[in-house]
Design a protein around this nucleic acid. Structure first.
Length: 137
RNA sequence: GCGGAGAGGCGGAUGGCCGCUGUGAUGGGUUUCCAUCAGCAGAGGAAAGUCCGGACUCCAAAAAGCGACGGUGCCGGGUAACGCCCGGGCGGGGAUCGGCAGGGGAACCUGCCGGGAACCCGACGGAAAGCGCCACAGAAAACAAACCGCCGCAUUCGUGCGGCAAGGGUGAAAAGGUGGGGUAAGAGCCCACCGCGCCGCUGGCAACAGGGGCGGCAUGGCAAGCCCCACCGGGAGCAAUGCCAAAUAGGGAUCGCGCGUCGCAAGACGGGGUUGCUUUUGCCCCAGCAGAUCCGGGUUGGCAGCUAGAGCUGUUCGGGCAACCGGAUGGCAAGAGGAAUGGUCAUCGAACCGGGGCAACUCGGGGAACAGAAUCCGGCUUAUAGCCUCUCCGCGCAC
């Protein structure tokens, strides 16, 4: 795979250039990553559940985030809407507060994920990240 | 105006800011990738259920016959095809209408029979090829038979013998129906009409319809139990399939030696397989070796398949009752892959709720149903807040 090359060039340019590239957030695609993250520390908020896991360094670089909505959330329309709102708050918050080498997983909840006011969702995620990071240290 | 009954369409709108996917151009880079452009495009009528029919791909392959299994089932047409669509036939329902009978002083009510609008419903081939079944009730459920009853004779007046199948009763269904003749009482026993069967005729491509003659009635129902008949169908599916890369093994291929039977040899003859069997034409393969070279299942990732095709659709011309077909001319068409098509804010907004008003309306609240493409088409089915449009039939009023 690419790991041997990518990190070297990636981190080099990161330091030269300002924030934009280094804080790009990748999405999780593997089932195994989700399962590993589910064993990490978690924080529950009214709109979602946040899980976090610190990766071993050779796995991948950067901050990664995944989204999960089970059948409990509702039909396909409801699940899609919940995921989109989660994706949006992750986009707005993680590039400031997300940490290098971390996997985050956001889990949708029935009804509340789709209906909770957006500004509250944002502060919920900020608070959740802060408490998780606090626990870690 | 009242009543009845169908068909079709729409499926929240606009804008700001911040994003996502694909793509075009330009520039940098030249494997990838990055930047720019007020760039362009980006969910549905059902995208759903995955129920039918196809396209496409693979299965060592195609054809014919037979068999099994599955499907379809009035007739004709449409279609790439269909279990779909259109038209027709038959049966059932159907507002209103007509007739008869009964009740009532009348208005009218009830029952039966007949015709029957728009329209709706129908697994709608065969029950005289065969087998099987027909619960309960009932005497009897298909070979026939006789509980109550009716009639005749006898009688010890208890009933016995014989005749009948019209009436009662049971049932989803009782061995043609109604009326008349006939009779001891009855019966297709005889007659008329209806029904049924057979044979001509007429109309229709046909399903079928109409009418005629003959037959005294033979054929109870269920095929959604088996079955028979006709027609159709090979299987698996885009997680198909092809290519590339990584990693590794019990595997495989080619070459070499060697290789079924007969033969000194040339050569001749075999055996097994080919997703039911047989045949034909083909095709694939026939011990072994710590030999050499190469490939490399599954798995993971990437690329292709992947969206322009039996395309959809507007207008118009021609053919057709129609479904649909043909021509002309315009418009529209997303391609994700833990899965884009959005997040948020503002303005406007339907149903609905409350207040006011005779009403038109007005003020405030409220804030949109079912639902998200996953290879692609044609259907069917199911879900759906609410809004809009059109058509047909009957009756009444006016003219």
């Amino acid at each position: 795979m690419t790991p041997p090359q990518a990190p070297l060039t990636g981190t080099a340019t990161d330091e030269e250039r300002p924030a934009a590239v280094s804080l790009r957030v990748q999405t999780l695609t593997k089932r195994a990553d989700f399962l590993r993250a589910s064993r990490g520390p978690r924080v529950a908020t009214p709109g979602f559940v946040l899980q976090m896991r610190k990766r071993s360094t050779e796995e991948a670089t950067g901050t990664r985030v995944g989204f999960t909505c089970s059948k409990k959330v509702g039909n396909a329309v409801a699940r899609n809407r919940a995921k989109r709102r989660l994706r949006e708050i992750a986009r707005l918050v993680l590039h400031e507060l997300g940490r290098e080498g971390m996997d985050y997983v956001l889990i949708g909840r029935a009804r509340t994920t789709a209906t909770r006011p957006f500004s509250q969702m944002l502060t919920d995620l900020e608070d959740a990240l802060n408490t998780l990071h606090g626990k870690k240290q």
